[in-house]
Design a protein around this nucleic acid. Structure first.
Lengths: 342, 342
DNA sequence: AAACATTGTGGAACCGGTTACACTTTTATG
DNA sequence: CATAAAAGTGTAACCGGTTCCACAATGTTT
């Protein structure tokens, strides 16, 4: 447990001043004679010197760290998003502090305090929907705040990156309608979430366009965590006039819904046609392979990182940026025309 | 973009010295009159003061940040591990810097430099197997280094947390042998990885115990990334005397292997019995539900975080700690007795 | 009541970098 | 060749916290 050399140690060993070493460390910050430079570099090498980030950050706040505040990394959608965000950030020499909220606004508030104390240059987050004042404060401090996947309606002046939720839900629903389904159900996130609301909107539009009646009993908003998705499924199956088709409009609920369907002995697609918002490789391996809405995760990641950093580097446009990327509907075999019923 | 108040601003506004404010900030570091304390707290509140982590860390290195260096977070196994590590760390007030190596030792070396400069108190990593000197240096600097899932044979003095790979592979193989399979294949990670090697060892032991012949053609080491797992599958299927059972011994390869099996029209379990090292909810939803080796991820996470921090807090035992937790074999329906062959 | 311990507070050095500025040495220009 | 401009280097202040130490005020012990 030896203690690390400091910039003064290096300066002394190289027979120069700390200013020179600093200039070697930050090319472009001032002139250094080539000979001196290489000598300093040699000394740093042999001493095993590494400049300390904390000290560097003291002078000017760092555009070197991003906060990534997700609901839950065990959800494969967020996991892949995290993976891409990290890669994207690394490509720009930025590090990522990963935090999770577990959909809990108290935890979210704690995480945000930490990020504030770290003076991160930007935060990419899936907000719980509360803590408005904290978000505002963060913004007013010059932190680049970007909401990804979801947004908060009461905060119109935040950059948002997400898929086009309305359109995605509409196309999924429309596809089912085109197959002749009349009783199409939707399971989605809580009504407090913008994704949930938007996807319901798209669903309703598709029904209206297809001239189908709306039945609120077919729309189930379920919590993201736990088995709420499965419970919603059971409720739908027990309906007097159960649906012949189902849109599972949130990744977090897909496996719990499918598990319930399997356990209930419902056969897909014969008894129930299915479309899911999910892009796991497993969807293709199911019997039958599932028709899915595929979210372009690397697009989401790229735009998020770019916006978060743009804010920090001062290029902050007056109006908030809203990026909506298109999701892709991948047709496989989990949809068939509904059976004529007795 | 107002600028943040500093400790001196608070001190001035409260009519006390900075030392007092610092003591309020760090309870236990010295006496403060209750009245003074509440006054200072009020001022901090109204000013919206948040102490700056970078400045705090300057004085004494911080036990406040952990590096988590994984191969790839899009792999659900690592994603769930990350999720648990983050939760575990948060529970102790520690933040997690997430980084990925993409199994590339050049990237790994860069990430390690960054972590060194941040003076993180600990690093939890899935090492690529190279960069030995850097790992050693990190250790000698007092950083708590913990290898999780894998290890590096040439570095015996590092704490390691993983499942019991030999035993897991043995039990999976033994189960297949018990069903009467004689041609049991294994697809696993590259031979350079300890997990790959250990799992092959367990596999061989099981064959020996069952009195079955060893056939190296049935053991395929495949790269973690890309479709190497699928290619290995094709090789196995094209063997003159193809296997009747298969152990897929690495999560990273499970979906590519299964995809290849499906595309090749191989029916599970009739033509091929299968056990996979994977614990996704999807494995249960397959037709048939897959028999799996389930890794106790929260155990791995808990021990990793604990060891990484123990090192930092000085309680470093002379001998390296090796934690091996037992994985669970979950029997489902992807194994049947082999058909008698013509 | 004297001697002493305890509590509460402030001044100033320090952590390890960055950087404004002054200074000396080269090199370029007229 | 004188002089201005540029290159190379050093000194010291600064960033925003923590902490050692000195000191005053209060409380406790004989």
């Amino acid at each position: 447990m030896q203690k690390q050399p400091t910039i003064r140690d290096v300066a002394h060993a190289a027979g120069v001043s700390v200013a020179v070493v600093s200039r070697v460390l930050n090319p472009g910050s001032g002139p250094v004679a080539p000979l001196t430079r290489s000598r300093v570099n040699d000394v740093m090498e042999t001493l095993g010197y590494h400049p300390r980030t904390a000290a560097r950050e003291l002078k000017h706040g760092p555009p070197t760290t991003l906060g990534l505040l997700l609901a839950d990394v065990s959800n494969p959608f967020f996991a892949r998003l995290a993976d891409r965000v990290v890669q994207e950030a690394h490509a720009r020499g930025i590090q990522v502090l990963l935090m999770t909220t577990q959909e809990d606004d108290r935890l979210e508030s704690e995480r945000l305090s930490t990020l504030m104390e770290r003076r991160v240059s930007g935060i990419i987050a899936t907000p719980t929907g509360n803590n408005l004042e904290i978000w505002r404060k963060l913004q007013s401090l010059g932190t680049g705040v970007v909401f990804v996947d979801r947004s908060i309606p009461d905060m119109p002046d935040v950059d948002v990156v997400s898929i086009n939720n309305i359109e995605s839900a509409r196309s999924a629903t429309a596809l089912l309608a085109a197959y002749g389904h009349k009783r199409i159900a939707m399971i989605t996130g809580p009504a407090t979430s913008t994704t949930g609301r938007d996807r319901i909107t798209g669903y309703r539009e598709a029904l209206r366009d297809a001239g189908l009646p709306q039945d609120d009993a077919l729309i189930r908003s379920a919590a993201f965590r736990g088995t709420a998705g499965g419970d919603a499924t059971t409720t739908l199956l027990n309906l007097q006039d159960p649906p012949t088709a189902l849109v599972v409009a949130n990744t977090a609920q897909v496996t719990t819904v499918l598990r319930r369907l399997v356990h209930s002995g419902v056969s897909i697609p014969d008894e129930l046609s299915v479309v899911v918002f999910e892009d796991s490789p497993w969807t293709e391996l199911m019997t039958p392979p599932l028709t899915i809405i595929r979210q372009p995760i690397d697009m989401l990641a790229r735009h998020s990182v770019q916006l978060a950093l743009a804010h920090a580097s001062g290029r902050t446009s007056a109006t908030p940026t809203v990026v909506r990327v298109d999701a892709e509907l991948v047709e496989r075999s989990s949809i068939v025309a509904p059976k004529a019923r007795a």
